Simulated scan of single mutants.
Amino acid sequence: MVSRLKVGIIGGGGWLGRAVGAALLGKGVVAPAGLVLSSRSGRVKGFDAWPEVQVTSDNRQLARQADIIVLSVRPEQFAAVAIDAPDKLVISFMAGISLATLEACTGSRRIIRAMPNAAAQIGQCYTPWFATPAVDVDDKTFTQAMFETCGSADEVDSEADLDYLSGLVGTGAAYPALLAEALLSHALARGLPRHIVENAVHGVVVGASQLLGRDGMVPAEMLKAMFDYRGTTAAGLQAMLDGGFQQAVEAGLDAADAAAQRMQARFAKTGQ
């Protein structure tokens, strides 16, 4: 069912704002005339098929027109947004900007913080989100529907959970890319042709990883099956674990969580 509410995406010219806007239109959640995008240039690529979509460079104008305001900008750009939205639903994609700061800077009590990622572009994004008490059932229903146009989503229990998940899912393809680069580097050092190595790594990181979740297969079950087979995979897995793989992953997630906390403290202190 197409929402009758007008949605405005501040930062609609960025990759994430464009992806969410296109998904809302493509899945019929929002009508073209019900979408407003803002960008500093006043232009947004990729919306030629929807001429009724309004594009502006004026965030204040967008805030006046929209019933729902999506903040899809970098945290360091938030200070320049300067909108007044006391009666609006505000949905923020910014890591490290707390609900309290968002309320103080927008005047709205209906705030949702969410953490989508780059996979929104291919409809494979998982988005956790958390809402203030003033957000009602209709607001939550729309929010869930919006994120499901790009993949899947869950409402989480606390803002602290959302901050932690920002470092887990907000990274998008970065963690798989780190694994892929390590595999690629090692294989190239053995003298294999680059095109062979690239195809092999893609087959592991992108292709074979899709087996996770098939037929109810969870990671622990897959690992047990590989260890029980006692072959080359088991040897490789054990060496990685003995080398501190688990500890490195935990350290990375802890560091990302700490960075989110520092960002919140910094923005709260400056009032931006």
Rank of each mutant, 00 (worst) to 15 (best):
E198N: 05
Q144M: 09
M94F: 06
C105Q: 15
R194Y: 13
M94L: 05
A95T: 09
A118F: 08
S166D: 09
V197T: 11
A134T: 07
I112N: 03
M115R: 00
D138M: 13
T171I: 12
N117D: 00
E103V: 14
I196R: 13
A187P: 01
A177Q: 08
P128V: 06
C125K: 05
T127Q: 00
V137I: 13
G96Y: 06
S158C: 04
S152R: 12
D154H: 12
D136K: 10
E181L: 12
W129K: 00
E198Q: 12
L178N: 07
Y126F: 15
N117F: 04
L165G: 04
A145Q: 15
A95F: 05
Q144F: 09
T101M: 12
H186R: 14
L178V: 15
A100E: 08
G170K: 00
Q124P: 00
L178T: 11
A182W: 06
V156F: 01
Y164C: 09
L183T: 01
M115A: 02
T141C: 08
D138K: 14
A182E: 06
M146H: 06
A118D: 01
E148R: 15
D157L: 13
T171D: 02
A173Q: 09
C150N: 08
P116A: 00
R194I: 06
R190S: 11
A119G: 00
C105D: 06
P116N: 06
G107K: 13
E103W: 07
P176C: 01
E198K: 05
L184Q: 10
I97F: 10
R190D: 08
A118W: 06
V169G: 00
V135F: 03
G170C: 02
A180Q: 04
L183S: 01
L184S: 11
G96D: 07
A189P: 05
H195S: 11
D139E: 11
V197G: 07
F93W: 07
V135A: 06
G107Q: 11
G191F: 09
A160C: 11
I112E: 01
S108Q: 10
I196W: 14
P116F: 13
S158D: 05
L179H: 12
T149P: 00
A134F: 12
A134Y: 11
A134H: 13
D163E: 13
T141R: 12
R110P: 01
G167S: 10
V137F: 12
A120K: 01
G96R: 04
S108L: 12
T149N: 06
Y164F: 15
E155Q: 14
V169N: 00
D157W: 11
G191A: 08
S152L: 03
G151N: 02
P193N: 08
C150I: 15
F142W: 05
A153E: 04
Q124C: 08
L179C: 12
S185E: 14
P128T: 02
A104Q: 11
L102A: 04
I122Q: 10
T141F: 07
